[in-house]
């Protein structure tokens, strides 16, 4: 999409992600994009969110993104400590939301973070399905984002189903429990309201055409006859994101190669200082 000088792509996407939240649910922070979207949502769109500072704990504190997301706490930043049992109980009772960044997502919203190729003879062994099976078998809203919409990421069929999408397998075993609800990419916002629960266009980002989306997808995405344009962030949205992420950890997710490495080192050198400026030590511990 063409850039607008008032916001960067990361700020556009984080705002779009923030606007998907609603209600009084726990939100886990496993990526900078996820953490910042939750924080912005809490400030502007879904004030009752219980945002966690780390993937599994630190409720009710501001999750300033760092490189080791969350697992880098000062004594002042701890928030309400939670246990893994509490996290999964929140998932099982559908009081939990998370933004997941899969390697592949398909027509039915199945997602893969485990392996490229056959699981038994991997072309690329990635990380393993982690907690995605739990999320997709229990949460009534599952949020996915993909930063580079392409035929490698948005595919006809995932190589391995880490996360359960829509379709007969889900209908037979999970019934009403959980379902993929939204996919945000650098091209648009998609949901799974197409025929038989397939992916459909909900909105396209400013300047993006349906042809471009179809060209960059591994299958034809269902499109309504009239497609809205994704609402861009307001000045206030952008300011909240910038204030919340002074180190610009969010930019790393969009970079690769030497540029990413350079920025990584620079953030690493500055993150402790920045965290202490935001969260002075209480000195109560240890």
């Amino acid at each position: 999409m063409p850039l607008d000088e008032r916001y960067a792509l990361d700020e556009f996407l984080i705002t779009t992600m923030a606007r998907q939240f609603s209600g009084e649910v726990m939100v886990s922070s496993v990526t900078a994009f996820g953490a910042l979207s939750a924080l912005l949502a809490k400030a502007r769109y879904a004030p009752d969110l219980a945002v966690l500072a780390t993937p599994e704990s630190g409720m009710e504190v501001t999750p300033m993104p760092t490189l080791s997301l969350g697992q880098f706490l000062t004594d002042a930043q701890r928030g309400i400590p939670l246990t893994m049992e509490e996290i999964f109980d929140a998932i099982f009772t559908d009081r939990f939301r998370i933004w997941i960044n899969p390697a592949q997502i398909d027509r039915h919203g199945n997602t893969n973070i485990s392996v490229i190729g056959d699981w038994h003879q991997p072309k690329v062994a990635m990380v393993g399905s982690r907690g995605i099976p739990e999320d997709t078998s229990h949460l009534s809203q599952i949020f996915y984002y993909v930063l580079t919409h392409s035929r490698r990421t948005v595919v006809e069929q995932v190589d391995f189903r880490s996360g359960a999408g829509t379709g007969p397998d889900r209908d037979a075993t999970l019934g009403e429990h959980g379902a993929p609800s939204v996919l945000v990419t650098d091209l648009g916002v998609f949901d799974f309201t197409g025929p038989d629960g397939t992916m459909a266009v909900r909105s396209l980002h400013p300047g993006v055409t349906l042809e471009e989306v179809q060209e960059k997808s591994g299958f034809e995405i269902h499109a309504p006859s009239s497609i809205p344009v994704t609402e861009p962030p307001t000045e206030e949205d952008v300011q909240i994101i910038r204030d919340a992420d002074p180190l610009e950890v969010r930019k790393l997710e969009l970079l690769s190669g030497p540029e990413a490495a350079e920025r990584f080192v620079s953030i690493y050198e500055r993150e402790r200082q920045a965290l202490h400026a935001a969260w002075p030590r209480l000195g109560k511990l240890g």
Binding site: H120, I132, P133, S137, S162, D169, R170, T173
Partner: peptide, 12 residues
């Protein structure tokens, strides 16, 4: 548990 239903974790 329900976790894993409708995923390939159960097949491998």
């Amino acid at each position: 548990t329900h976790a894993g239903l409708a995923t390939d974790v159960l097949s491998v």
